[in-house]
Amino acid sequence: MSAVDSCGAPEQSAPIPASVDVEKETVITGVVSSGDGPVGGAYVRLLDSTGEFTAEVVTSPAGQFRFFAAPGNWTLRALSRQGNGDASLAADRGINEIAVAVA
């Protein structure tokens, strides 16, 4: 069982490897969805507070993505066959959940 399970994090976030200490990490996780539901295979980029690219992941079949960032302001940008979309958040240490809609 990972630390995340014991924190009761909602099931829609991407699983965290047991070796990762979520007390020390700033995890940004969530789901990309369109009007038809979760979008798997979407490309999600994490942009820093200046809009500069920091990382990119591909969503799981259930539309999940996950980043290890640092506390601060971040923007997520998703590209997919179903369309593109953005979402922003202020992240703190621990698990930060955010949904990204594409259209």
């Binding site: 990382a55 290890f68 640092a70």
Partner: peptide, 19 residues
Amino acid sequence: RSPDEFAGRLLAPAHLPQE
């Protein structure tokens, strides 16, 4: 690397754990 890694605010690209 990303500006945050350059500055020393992050140690790895943000899809990887930072420790």
